[in-house]
Design a protein around this nucleic acid. Structure first.
Lengths: 299, 299
DNA sequence: TCGCTTGATAGATAATTTCTATCAATCCGG
DNA sequence: CCGGATTGATAGAAATTATCTATCAAGCGA
């Protein structure tokens, strides 16, 4: 039964019988039979088909909702019993928005010190992807904005406030300032994240609010790409203050991270985890770690 | 998997492999194998055995907790999908303390008017039994005291306040009074419920608080037994006001239900259902009915 | 010690799951 | 309108799993 529900979850995220079957490690006919068996036991069609996957029926959506819960609980049960016996062990899947990636370390490092048998997989994702993957049990927790989009059924732990800095070479225009305005920042050529990232949309909105069309010379979905460009001192960027310092961008004194004011924008970043009661022990320990870390991070 | 968890639930309430197997409609070796399979997948012993069932291990208790949740959710899922398709249908299992049995009607009658395809099974139980059977998914809802023992993980809807009346023949001693005190009531021979019932314990405590040892001439766990004795007019009893009226005990004017004062004791009776979110549609509809009925019942 | 209760075990059988191979329907570009 | 590609359903065989009956061994109580 539970494994059939997993088939349904896979189908929901792959929207394709073959790929869903692959993801579950079974062949396509097996997955088809599993779904059909669910439909038989409920006496209701769950999936709209017509030579290809066409989404779920109303009943299917409800079953899907239950499947998420039941499968999640079954996993949590396994994990908890294993933890009772062998201590915390396993793999924690975390996704973070690119600008928060450098902060993941503040959670994982103390976590691992406390629970050495836990392994981590960290994904770089957009804030929207984080929420849907959390919903679909593809990740255990996320690091994302808490104050923008509606979060859904999650537990949220605020970690820190993202404040923005203009990153420029010390000898470039504006490089000697104590603070710059968004209006001034909008006039410099910038390299930023791609527009599917919320950070980019936030910054771009702040720049546009000045009335000046910003000049975004280079964009990428990879922080490493931006990082390497900015490090040269020949590219300017806007990035969260905490990110610039944790990457050590200003240590050489070649670069300066200048506070951007008017307005002094700020967004809360925090840990999100499924609002399941109780959580899996691995996730619960991460939330504990976040609550521990939060007071050390707030500014 | 889920069926194995049901085995575990059956074992928890029967405390006996053979009887649990019977309850599940399988043979004893099948149930034994099912439990062992759970133990294998978790890699942990769940049940302490030694030629007979000796309770669950710590891990077993945790698994049991999850099993209750998962099995409950699986049932709720089935029920909800069925309701989407065919409207509310099925059987609702309700347990009530004996003194509240006559009030069940105020919920079931309007419920059935709204959902004609729902059937009911109503059990007479002690307040403690109601809570454990609720926990073990043996019943869907209960009617019991809300303000005495800790209720556990349940949703509670207050329905009415139980106030006490001395039920006596009009021509018996005290039969002509507008009110009597507990002290006076303690001096009359009474027939009451057996001491495993909370109602009896409440009343007995109120009687004892007067300093006089009450004279409890007859006790029974059956309201019908008490009812038939009291109807003769030759036996006195203490019972909730609402019960006396809803059974029509005073309609013939042979009996009088006299308010007992000093103190004017009162206990809240209400509907309890498992605190599952969301509830099964059948249970949710009953809770709705209770919320609807409550304003009509409060005094 | 004997008899009874309780749960485990063995072996046979039934049910189910899953696989490989193949098919039918649909879509899309020419 | 055709032909290749894609997608999911279907058949049939093989493997796995579940369940049953029958029996056994341990422990408990008289």
């Amino acid at each position: 039964m539970i494994d059939k529900l997993e088939f349904l979850l896979a189908l929901a995220r792959e929207k394709h019988f073959g790929r869903a079957a692959d993801a579950c490690g079974v062949t396509q006919p097996t997955l088809s039979a599993g779904v059909k068996q669910l439909e038989d036991t409920f006496g209701v069609l769950l999936v709209n088909r017509g030579s290809r996957f066409q989404g779920f029926t109303a009943e299917g959506e409800r079953v899907l909702d239950w499947a998420r819960r039941i499968v999640g609980d079954a996993r949590a049960m396994r994990e908890e019993v294993h933890a009772l016996r062998h201590g915390l062990a396993g793999r924690l899947r975390i996704a973070a928005i690119p600008t928060a990636l450098a902060m993941v370390e503040t959670l994982t490092t103390p976590y691992r010190a406390r629970h050495p048998n836990v392994q981590f997989t960290v994904y770089s994702r957009t804030s929207i992807e984080i929420l849907t993957e959390l919903e679909n049990l593809e990740i255990d927790a996320g690091l994302t904005y808490l104050d923008n989009e509606p979060l859904g059924r999650v537990t949220a732990v605020p970690l820190y406030n993202e404040r923005y800095r203009l990153l420029v070479a010390a000898d470039a225009p504006l490089g000697d300032r104590q603070s710059v305005t968004w209006r001034e920042a909008a006039q410099v050529p910038l390299c930023l994240l791609t527009p599917d990232m919320q950070n980019r949309r936030i910054i771009e909105q702040l720049l546009r609010d000045t009335g000046i069309a910003p000049n975004i010379t280079l964009e990428s979905d990879s922080m490493v790409l931006l990082y390497s460009h900015v490090r040269t001192g020949r590219w300017a960027s806007v990035m969260p203050a905490r990110l610039a310092t944790s990457l050590g961008l200003t240590e050489s004194n070649k670069l300066r991270a200048i506070p951007i004011v008017e307005p002094e924008a700020s967004h809360t970043i925090g840990l999100v985890a499924p609002a399941r009661e109780p959580m899996t022990p691995l996730t619960a320990a991460l939330v504990t770690e976040a609550r521990r870390a939060a007071p050390l991070l707030v500014d």
